[in-house]
């Protein structure tokens, strides 16, 4: 029983990182229609930045917050490269973000080497579970709630939603669509960065951890067709918990397949349904 609880809590904790990564993908996709392949790189870059800032003597907390802001800035730059040139289609932008993900490898190895890195999180354990997992869950809950409020309760959030819903109409009322896209990339970058910062104390990060993160984040988000934040959160938690249970009771070697098979199943099932609708 205690074992089950432990798996559930660690699963939810890891799932939070997927949900954050997935939410970043959703924010960017909704506003720009671009699936940001470099989403995992934000997490890796932020986590590696934390190691440097801590090494430079900054206290915990400050180092993590700064790293998340850096990730937001990197997100903004990625958005500028991927969508800044007029006439860039979402398909083209996807390939550009693929390139940016590879460019991140070069930067990461140059500054931090190719060995896995980690840093200390919240020490101790609560009720048989590492306390840090509770921190991950708490911070994720607060940040996702704040993001939801940003979209629902502020004019900036309304403008982001408006741009996502109808870019033409957004232009008509004077919303700068490109700037909204860049803002979305910045928010997406910060959410991705937060995922990396939170998860690294319990899961080492290396330059190529981004693939697993973006795949898990995408799997979480695909449940809500890349547009529904609540379903993305549900998807992330579900994946995290199932992975923890599979790893705990079956074998850790099947863990990574969980998200992949889930993603394929959702994609194929949805395409099948679309096919039926088209035929009807």
């Amino acid at each position: 029983m205690a074992e089950l609880l432990q798996y559930l809590v660690t699963g939810v904790g890891i799932g939070c990182a997927y949900a954050l990564t997935g939410s970043g993908l959703v924010v960017i996709y909704r506003v720009t229609r671009v699936v940001n392949f470099a989403q995992g790189s934000f997490a890796v870059l932020a986590a590696l930045t934390v190691t440097t800032l801590l090494g430079a003597g900054l206290p915990h907390g400050l180092a993590e917050i700064l790293a998340v802001l850096v990730a937001g800035l990197i997100g903004l730059l990625c958005g500028l490269v991927a969508t800044g040139k007029p006439g860039t289609t979402p398909q083209t932008a996807l390939i550009v973000t693929l390139g940016l993900g590879v460019l991140a490898y070069a930067v990461e190895i140059l500054f931090w080497g190719d060995q896995p890195r980690s840093f200390a999180g919240l020490a101790g354990s609560t009720g048989g579970v590492q306390t840090h997992y509770l921190l991950i869950i708490g911070v994720t809950a607060v940040v996702l709630a704040a993001t939801a409020l940003l979209f629902a309760r502020t004019d900036l959030g309304r403008a982001l939603t408006a741009t996502a819903a109808d870019p033409y109409a957004a232009r008509i009322v004077g919303i700068d669509v490109l700037r909204m896209g860049l803002l979305a990339f910045a928010v997406g970058g910060a959410l991705g960065g937060l995922a990396g910062v939170l998860i690294t104390p319990v899961q080492q990060v290396s330059f190529d951890s981004d693939v697993a993160l973006v795949v898990n984040g995408f799997s979480a988000a695909i449940l809500g067709n890349l547009t529904r934040p609540a379903l993305t959160l549900a998807g992330g938690l579900l994946l995290g918990v199932v992975q923890a249970l599979v790893g705990g009771y079956l074998s850790t070697s099947y863990q990574s397949e969980v998200a992949l098979i889930f993603m394929l199943a959702v994609l194929v099932a949805r395409a099948g349904r679309r096919g039926v609708l088209e035929a009807a």
Binding site: V35, F37, P90, Q91, L94, V211, V215, F218, I222, S256, L260, I261, M263, L264, L267, V268, A271, G272, R274, G275
Partner: peptide, 19 residues
Amino acid sequence: PILRLRGHQLAFATLALQL
């Protein structure tokens, strides 16, 4: 099954299959 997918969906599906 997977060639019914388009764009980013197929990109991620092919990536998932390789993984």
